[in-house]
């Protein structure tokens, strides 16, 4: 019995070692280095003096940092429902027996996931460019006035939201499709015998049984929305003004454009703590996605 236990333990460590090593090299070491940098005035080249908590003091009194953080939260909260609901509805639709061209539709919806954020940005720019964009061209052809996508903060944020949802829907849809296919047909058959309508089946069976998946999608979407960077860089570069300058972009700008690596590292640590707290709250509220047991 003891021998069997030891063998299991060895197998456990053998299996976990490759991912553990990668996690250590690409996450733990950079994290430690980042924390060390956050206590210095490192400029990316020659200057690196220990300056204690100065970077943290500056970050916590930086109104622009708070402004970027607030905008990030608003962006994440507003977009989260779309990130979860649209893939769920598409997955339900594309697993229905009544729908045709399912494979084609799934592929078409998934293709944007394969594109890099910058390619998505270029595509979106081509569509929404103020002067020469496709959408404004069509609007003008129909006799309308071109829309000031790049001048209005709300419209610029809308474009980023649209692009972000478009680029990620396919990924979450596939996760939902896998989960829906795993729901036992017996449950649906029993419901049918009881005379349950399609709408009730969705609300009373499918959605509750998908709760662990919904938790996963919600968590991944929240983290990705809070970290949104490359897409914004490709579409609005943080404008108009600073209306789409979210917190990661602000940190990147401080670090890589202004060579304030120490300060950027301190802000990263603060952000990491905030994001971790948000993820922890989500885990607690959703009981880690296990509450359907």
């Amino acid at each position: 019995m003891q021998k069997r236990k030891n063998r299991m333990s060895h197998a456990f460590w053998m299996l976990i070692f490759p991912s553990g090593l990668l996690f250590f090299v690409f996450f733990i070491i950079p994290l430690i280095l980042n924390i060390i940098l956050s206590f210095t005035n490192y400029d990316g080249w020659k200057t690196m003096n220990f300056i204690g908590l100065s970077n943290y003091q500056e970050a916590l009194t930086d109104s622009r940092f708070y402004s970027a953080l607030l905008k990030t939260f608003i962006y994440a909260i507003v977009n989260l429902p779309f990130k979860v609901i649209i893939p769920l509805l598409l997955a339900v639709l594309l697993t229905s027996d009544k729908v045709k061209f399912k494979t084609f539709s799934r592929t078409a919806i998934y293709i944007p996931v394969l594109l890099s954020s910058l390619v998505v940005g270029i595509t979106i720019n081509w569509m929404f460019s103020q002067e020469y964009g496709l959408i404004n061209f069509l609007i003008q052809q129909l006799g309308g006035q071109p829309v000031a996508w790049g001048r209005q903060p709300a419209l610029a944020t809308f474009i980023i939201s649209l692009a972000s949802t478009w680029a990620s829907t396919g990924f979450y849809m596939i996760i939902y499709i896998g989960a829906i296919n795993n729901i036992s047909h017996d449950v649906y058959e029993a419901a049918e015998i009881d005379g349950v309508s399609a709408w009730q089946r969705l609300l009373k069976i499918t959605i509750p049984l998908l709760m662990p998946t919904t938790f996963l999608v919600t968590l991944l979407s929240t983290v990705n929305l809070l970290k949104e960077y490359a897409l914004i860089q490709g579409v609005t570069q943080g404008g108009p003004g600073t209306s789409t300058t979210f917190v990661i972009q602000y940190i990147f700008d401080k670090g890589f454009n202004q060579s304030l690596y120490g300060y950027a590292a301190a802000m990263s640590v603060v952000i990491m703590i905030i994001f971790a707290v948000i993820a922890f709250i989500q885990f607690k509220v959703n009981e880690g996605g296990e509450f359907t047991k």
């Binding site: 720019n125 460019s129 103020q130 002067e131 000031a148 996508w149 790049g150 001048r151 903060p153 610029a156 579409v235 609005t236 570069q237 943080g238 404008g239 108009p240 003004g241 209306s243 789409t244």
Partner: peptide, 8 residues
């Protein structure tokens, strides 16, 4: 739009 940013 050139000087407000928000577009390339």
């Amino acid at each position: 739009v050139i000087w407000t940013g928000g577009s390339s």
